[in-house]
Amino acid sequence: MAQAQRIPTVEQSLANIHALFGSQSHAGLVYDNLPEDFRRAICSAARLTKAHINMPLADMDEVSRAKLHRAINTLADALKPLANRSLKDFR
C-alpha cells in the first residue's frame, strides 16, 4: 500500500511561500513586489533614503519599517476620498 502524503498546514504553506520570495510576512511579500515607482513614492513619504527603495522589507531596521508603516497608512487614509473618482472630478 502506498504511503499517504502529508499535506502541509496553512502556516507551513505560507512560511514556504515567504521563504521562496525571501520575505518574512505577508506585508513584506506585498511590499517587496510593488513596482519600483510605488516603493519610491512610499519611501519618499516616509522620508527614507534612496537605498531603501530597493531594499526588501525584511532587511530594514525597526525604525525604517515603522516609518514605512506610518507613511502607508497616512497615504491610504488621505487618498481614500480621491480613489475611484472619474477624471472629470479632477478639475
Results as ranks from 00 to 15, higher is better:
M1E: 09
A2H: 07
A2E: 12
Q3K: 03
Q3M: 06
Q3S: 07
A4M: 04
Q5H: 07
R6H: 03
I7F: 12
P8E: 03
P8I: 04
T9V: 01
T9D: 02
V10S: 02
V10Y: 09
Q12V: 03
S13C: 06
S13D: 01
S13M: 08
L14C: 01
N16K: 07
N16F: 02
I17H: 06
I17Y: 10
H18G: 01
L20G: 07
L20Q: 10
L20T: 10
L20S: 10
F21I: 02
F21C: 01
G22E: 06
G22C: 05
Q24C: 02
S25A: 12
H26T: 12
H26Y: 11
H26D: 11
H26L: 11
H26K: 01
A27H: 04
A27I: 06
A27C: 04
G28R: 01
L29Q: 09
L29E: 09
V30G: 03
V30F: 13
Y31W: 07
D32T: 01
D32C: 02
D32I: 02
D32Q: 03
N33V: 00
N33F: 10
N33G: 07
N33R: 13
L34D: 07
L34T: 08
P35Q: 14
E36Y: 04
F38W: 08
R39Q: 07
R40E: 11
R40G: 00
I42N: 02
I42V: 11
I42E: 03
C43H: 09
C43K: 05
S44N: 11
A46K: 07
A46T: 06
T49M: 05
T49I: 02
T49V: 00
T49W: 08
K50M: 05
A51N: 12
A51T: 08
H52I: 00
I53N: 04
M55L: 14
P56V: 14
P56M: 14
L57V: 02
L57E: 05
L57D: 05
L57G: 05
A58V: 14
D59R: 13
D59W: 08
M60Y: 09
M60V: 09
E62M: 11
E62P: 04
V63D: 15
V63E: 15
S64C: 13
R65K: 15
R65L: 01
K67P: 00
K67I: 02
R70C: 09
A71I: 13
A71C: 12
I72V: 15
I72L: 15
I72E: 07
N73I: 01
T74N: 13
T74P: 00
L75Q: 13
L75F: 10
L75K: 03
D77I: 04
A78D: 14
L79Y: 13
K80D: 09
K80T: 08
K80F: 10
L82Y: 12
L82T: 01
A83P: 00
A83Q: 14
L87T: 11
K88V: 09
D89V: 00
D89L: 04
F90L: 10
F90S: 01
